[in-house]
């Protein structure tokens, strides 16, 4: 550790232990390295292997090849069922979430950010919309289960549609409605996040561009679609990736609001993984679901690594 050798960062790490290696780096890295290896690297390998095993008790008991995957894709209508229209099952529900949740959060986030930017109480509106980000998904679930209550003297939504003589509707009890009802909660919980990020991006658009467009006679509509939308497309794509990850990992809302029900109508992959492995004792099958989730996230990982590199972080 001679000071003069300048064991200082940003020059590329050497490929061999030798002169220039800072031995105290071992002390700084070791605790984190041990935990990462024991709790992340080793388990990932273990789970991938277990997905090809019967996995009784979470241990390797009997190799079954692709049977867990075969079962999930071909013989488990609660995971994916393409034989009906519309299709159903946990994986299909994730797709439904992906399409509706991601697009609506982005659209609403941008609209609210643009509108809020034109009024004096901008900060207040952003704080109100952002607030759900602070609280637990479990609390969101309780708040909205109450709003959706089929009893019109308790559930706000049924009370509202009751004023025009409709309902009451069992929003969470109807297999055709339940997914949309929970997706709405997910959107409600995430729009503030999009609003705050996009509002910051909007402020980065140079004033001159919009002024010039206005002088040239562009309408507000044209300014929104031709200037604002393209100029926030980069933060939008980063946001979209984050929202996709949210969808793949989605668990708490479903678990608390419906426990995957009615029947299996509102299941998602993370819910199936938990239920099959820990409630059903089918660890091999649960591992297979976890591996499917991992595979879906690999393109997202690649996207992020590329992004981090282009930002000269690595």
């Amino acid at each position: 550790m001679t000071a003069a050798s300048g064991a200082i960062g940003s020059s590329r790490g050497r490929r061999s232990w030798g002169e220039g290696t800072n031995w105290s780096s071992l002390v700084f890295l070791l605790p984190a390295a041990i935990l990462v290896i024991v709790f992340l690297v080793y388990p990932t390998i273990y789970t991938v292997l277990l997905s090809f095993n019967r996995g009784r008790n979470g241990e390797f008991t009997e190799w079954v090849g692709l049977r867990n995957y075969e079962q999930l894709f071909l013989r488990d209508p609660a995971f994916i069922n393409l034989s009906t229209f519309p299709p159903s099952g946990a994986m299909w529900n994730n797709l439904l979430w992906l399409i509706l949740y991601v697009s609506i959060v982005l659209a609403l986030g941008l609209i609210i950010a643009v509108m809020a930017g034109r009024v004096r109480y901008e900060a207040l509106i952003k704080a109100v919309v952002f607030l759900p980000m602070a609280i637990a998904a479990t609390a969101l679930a309780v708040i909205w289960t109450f709003v959706y209550s089929p009893n019109p003297t308790q559930g706000l939504l049924n009370a509202i549609i009751g004023t025009v003589g409709a309902g009451p509707v069992a929003w969470l009890g109807n297999p055709d409605l339940v997914n949309y009802a929970i997706i709405a909660v997910g959107i409600w919980g995430s729009v503030g996040f999009a609003t705050v990020i996009l509002s910051a991006a909007l402020k980065g658009i140079p004033t001159e561009i919009i002024e010039a467009a206005r002088v040239d006679g562009a309408s507000e509509r044209q300014i929104f679609f031709r200037i604002i939308v393209p100029m926030v497309s980069l933060p939008m794509s980063v946001l979209a990736v984050t929202l996709v990850v949210n969808v793949v990992k989605l668990f708490d809302l479903i678990f608390v609001m419906t426990a995957g029900g009615p029947g299996t109508a509102s299941r998602v992959m993370a819910f199936t993984m938990y239920t099959e492995a820990f409630a059903g004792g089918l660890f091999g099958k649960g591992a297979a679901v976890a591996v499917i989730m991992l595979l879906i996230l690999i393109p997202v990982m690649a996207f992020n690594i590329r992004r981090f590199r282009s930002e000269a972080v690595v």
Partner: peptide, 12 residues
């Protein structure tokens, strides 16, 4: 490792 879903680690 940042993106790995925790589900992958649960069973082991």
């Amino acid at each position: 490792l940042l993106m790995i879903p925790v589900q992958v680690a649960f069973i082991p």
